[in-house]
C-alpha cells in the first residue's frame, strides 16, 4: 500500500488505512519485525479517531510491547486513560530493572496477555529487564569490574530461580553478544569487565 500513488491512496477511506496498518503491525510484531510493527501501529494509533477508544486501546496492546523492545516506556497516565492498568507494573518493572515486578505483572495478567496474543512478547521482555537491572548495578558499583556473584545475588533477591552462577553467565553473555553491554566476562575472576567508555549501547 505504501507503493500506491498518492492520488490513489487518498481515495482509500481513512478507517481502512487504520485497519490495514493495525493488522500489518500486528503481523509484523509476530514476525519479530519491530520496525515495521512500530511504524504501522503508530500510524494506526495516530489516525484512529479519539472517539474509538476501544480500538485505540487494542492498538496500544500491541504497540506497547513493541515500543518497550525499542526502549520506550509508556506513561502511567496513558495506561490509565486507555484502561490498561494491567501494564503499569510491567512497564515499571522493565524501566527499573525490577524483574520481580515484571514477573508478577505477567503472572497476574496471564489470561489477558494470552487472550491478546502478546504473552510471549512480554516474556521476552525479561532480557531487557535484566539489562536495566545490570545497568543499575553498574551505577551502584561505580567501577568497570562487576562481580557476577553480585548480579546473581540481586536476581535471587528479586525472586529469580537461579541455582548456578553459570545461568547468570549465560544471561550476561547473551547481553554482550546482542551488543547491549560492551565488555567481556573474565571466567577466572567471575567478573564482567565493562568498557571504560560508554559500556552500554544507545
Amino acid at each position: 500500500i505504501d507503493n500506491l500513488s498518492v492520488s490513489f491512496k487518498a481515495r482509500i477511506p481513512l478507517s481502512e488505512l487504520v485497519t490495514y496498518n493495525f493488522y500489518l503491525g500486528k503481523k509484523a510484531m509476530f514476525d519479530s519485525d519491530l520496525q515495521t510493527a512500530d511504524k504501522s501501529l503508530e500510524y494506526a494509533f495516530k489516525y484512529c479517531p479519539e472517539k474509538y477508544l476501544e480500538n485505540k486501546r487494542r492498538i496500544l496492546i500491541y504497540w506497547i510491547p513493541v515500543k518497550m523492545f525499542l526502549g520506550e516506556i509508556p506513561l502511567d497516565s496513558v495506561l490509565e486513560d486507555y484502561n490498561l492498568n494491567e501494564f503499569k507494573i510491567i512497564a515499571q518493572g522493565v524501566r527499573d530493572g525490577n524483574i520481580r515486578y515484571l514477573r508478577q505483572g505477567i503472572i497476574s495478567n496471564r489470561q489477558f496477555l494470552m487472550k491478546s496474543g502478546v504473552y510471549l512478547m512480554f516474556e521476552k521482555l525479561a532480557q531487557l529487564t535484566y539489562l536495566a537491572l545490570f545497568k543499575r548495578l553498574a551505577t551502584i558499583i561505580g567501577r568497570p569490574q562487576i562481580k557476577i556473584e553480585m548480579f546473581m545475588h540481586l536476581l535471587k533477591f528479586l525472586g529469580e530461580d537461579i541455582r548456578h552462577i553459570d545461568e547468570v553467565v549465560c544471561v550476561l553473555s547473551n547481553l554482550i553478544a546482542k551488543k547491549k553491554i560492551k565488555g567481556y566476562i573474565s571466567k577466572t575472576h567471575n567478573t564482567v569487565v565493562l568498557s571504560k567508555l560508554s559500556p552500554f549501547y544507545e
Binding site: 503508530e42 495516530k46 515500543k67 520506550e72 516506556i73 509508556p74 506513561l75 496513558v78 515499571q92 524501566r95 527499573d96 530493572g97 525490577n98 543499575r136 548495578l137 551505577t139 551502584i140 553480585m150 545475588h153 540481586l154 533477591f157
Partner: peptide
C-alpha cells in the same frame, strides 16, 4: 500527541531511585 505517550528521559539516574536504594542495601 506522539510525545505524550512515552516517558521522557526514563533512563535518568533519578528514575527509580528508591529501587536503587533497596538494591544497594541488599548488596
Amino acid at each position: 500527541e506522539k510525545d505524550t505517550i512515552w516517558e521522557d528521559n526514563w533512563e535518568d539516574e533519578t528514575v527509580g531511585e528508591d529501587f536503587s536504594v533497596e538494591l544497594r542495601a541488599e548488596l
